[in-house]
Write a protein that binds this DNA or RNA. Structure first.
Lengths: 203, 203
DNA sequence: TTATTCTGACAATAGCACGTGTCAGAAAAC
DNA sequence: GTTTTCTGACACGTGCTATTGTCAGAATAA
């Protein structure tokens, strides 16, 4: 009875296989949520999109919301990494930097439309736990927007929290409407509109 | 067999009784949604809050969403009537008028907290039919905000639809945060913050 | 009073999806 | 080749809620 468990399959250890399945579930979820919306996506549907069965769902996630959060955070990480890079490495004025960051934001939403729907729309109002994740992200986003338009010689007038929340709400609402319109206008035009609202943070 | 139906009860005709029950259901729904949230509110719970039974629920509404919409529109009518009155009858500058309308908006949300939760939070992302109602309201709200800050000698620069959507999103997001905070700041301060964002429409 | 209509409580049905369990066959180890 | 572990398909029980149906009793009209 030598506990010879953890046999290799396809050259991968048990842990590696489990993580690979987890990734497949997350990618499948992003696609399934994008197509059906989170509400209409059953555990079974996600598993089919991932090419796996329910068995493996519960191997990696306690329930549907846990997968939703994991998928959201995957997209979120991609977006913020990109936005922070643009913001940090941009050499121009605060005005130009703001426009560049916003352009990057809306460009990502256009390039990955399933991810965009999850990141902007599907995440909202699912339940208390998920709402907390969304709320935290809005704060983080507010930070980025505030830094983005802050003059370099920044004396930190520190706009109120509500103003910052409002600006974030505006930027996100623009994204929602733009997505709903089928990405009717150009990324540049959308970013310019959003920048008008973000300037409130620079005053 | 004289179809002597429609007997009066408590001095009310059958139709009057039915409408009265409908009203009770709507008021019960506003309270129940405020306490539990729409998602956690069963048909049974609404009926208990209204002091009626499921039988009468289906007498007036096809399903839960129909009642949600009816309750939302009840609150919505109250709010818009008030906002339009303030806007129309205000004599000062565009700036002052804007502040007055916003103050009225946030004051209502504070005075009727159950209604506020329904009007701002619970209505969102319930389903396609309800989302359409919410989307229509945001447009209407955008109209009010745009008129509110428009200079009297208005040459209508007509801000883009996305900008307007963004401003509405900002004002609503401020409401959400304020509600979440337990109405921490004064109505006046909140309205002042919201006005900062609304000024984008006046440019 | 007597007959009729209305009302409220509750039972019964049905549907949906979660979460778990089973099991035969595939893939690796020996 | 034999044994053991892993994998995928699927069935099952469970719980929750909407929605319909039933029925005894209250309120009203005659």
């Amino acid at each position: 009875m030598t506990t010879a468990r953890a046999r290799n399959y396809a050259g991968l250890s048990a842990d590696e296989r489990r993580l690979a399945r987890r990734e497949r579930l997350i990618e499948g979820a992003i696609r399934a949520y994008g197509e059906l919306g989170y509400r209409n996506t059953t555990v079974k549907a996600v598993c089919e999109a991932a090419g796996l069965t329910e068995r493996y769902f519960y191997e990696s996630f306690a329930n549907s919301e846990a997968l939703l959060v994991a998928a959201f955070e995957t997209v979120s990480r991609r977006v913020f990494t990109c936005l922070e890079d643009v913001r940090r490495e941009h050499g121009g004025s605060a005005e130009e930097r703001g426009h560049a960051v916003l352009r990057a934001y809306y460009q990502i939403l256009k390039d990955d439309q399933d991810g965009a729907r999850l990141f902007v729309i599907e995440i909202a109002r699912v339940g208390p736990a998920v709402d907390a994740v969304w709320g935290a992200l809005l704060l983080q986003f507010g930070e980025v927007l505030a830094k983005m338009v802050a003059p370099d010689s920044d004396i930190k007038p520190k706009p109120g929290e509500l103003v910052r929340a409002g600006v974030v709400g505006g930027v996100v609402q623009i994204a929602k409407e733009w997505i709903r319109s089928g990405y009717a206008r150009s990324v540049d035009a959308v970013a310019a509109d959003a920048l008008k609202i973000c300037r409130v943070l620079a005053a």
